[in-house]
């Protein structure tokens, strides 16, 4: 498989990455369904029930249907991936995820010719997700990828971290991880996956289109309108740690830059 060399490169890099502590990763989160503060998810996500969990797969697929999470996971190969995680708010972490490649799931479901994009939806359950009872965001949270991005071997469906089942505040029981994109693309607590031929609507892009693009690739040269993306605060460094330079495509340039050949990354931000 052509992916082998690529994964090898990822692994060589992974050795230099020092994961954040489990404590950091599970106490500093954006999960707006539970509140807008970084500390809200760990406070309120306990109310979320994640069993039973089903994922609806529909649109341009050979085997549409509503699948129990267990059925999907048992057909996949779970591995560990240590990835950089860069938030659009200019902070970053390193997370040892456990999960399977989204490509495997899409192949399992059977992608029909004509599919160009993959759309994702988060659970909508206001009883358990207090901020969904407020009106500032058009719930459910939605995200999307171009099909080639979705099929990329770095794109992960994560079911855990540090070898433990996915903590609720991090998007239990299953979430997307796209390490070369800003964190908001990595949609949490997924209940629906749709293969489509049109670019799907995505939550942050719908809210503030001039600030959050569909692509949202990590790019130190394209600033957010309200802050610089050139550097990032590494979480866990304490009061006196300096920001570090942000890497193009969050350090995954060799692996993914080819996906965007010929595209103006300032236009398609």
């Amino acid at each position: 498989v052509g992916g082998l060399g690529l994964i090898g490169a990822g692994r060589a890099r992974a050795e230099t990455l020092e994961p954040n502590s489990f404590e950091d990763i599970t106490s500093y989160n954006n999960f707006y369904e539970f509140g807008f503060d970084k500390g809200d998810p760990v406070k309120y996500a306990g109310a979320l029930t994640t069993e039973p969990w089903r994922i609806e797969i529909d649109g341009l697929v050979e085997r549409p249907g509503s699948y129990a999470l267990d059925e999907i996971v048992s057909a996949m190969t779970i591995e560990e991936r240590i990835y950089r995680f860069r938030c659009v708010e200019a902070w970053s972490m390193v997370v040892p995820w456990n999960g399977f490649e989204l490509a495997d799931l899409l192949t399992w479901a059977g992608v029909k010719p004509g599919a160009k994009y993959v759309a994702f939806e988060t659970l909508y359950r206001p009883k358990e997700m207090p901020a969904q009872r407020g009106g500032s965001i058009d719930w459910p949270y939605r995200e999307g990828l171009r099909l080639d991005e979705a099929m990329h071997p770095l794109t992960l469906m994560a079911t855990g971290l540090y070898g433990k089942p996915m903590p609720k505040q991090n998007g239990a029981p299953i979430r997307l991880v796209v390490p070369w994109k800003y964190g908001f693309k990595s949609i949490k607590s997924i209940v629906k996956i749709t293969l489509t031929d049109k670019q799907p609507e995505t939550t942050w892009n719908m809210l503030q289109p001039q600030e959050y693009g569909f692509y949202a690739n990590v790019n130190p040269q394209v600033d957010h309108p309200r802050w610089s993306q050139a550097r990032e605060r590494v979480i866990g460094g304490g009061l006196f740690s300096a920001k570090k330079p942000t890497l193009m495509f969050n350090g995954y340039e060799d692996e993914v830059a080819g996906l965007y050949d010929g595209m103006d990354l300032e236009t398609f931000y």
Partner: peptide, 18 residues
């Protein structure tokens, strides 16, 4: 507040919290 920030009382990202 500074003492909290230095000892983890302001969470994993104390600068912004401070």
């Amino acid at each position: 507040l500074f003492w909290l920030g230095e000892t983890g009382g302001l969470g994993p990202e104390p600068i912004n919290a401070l």
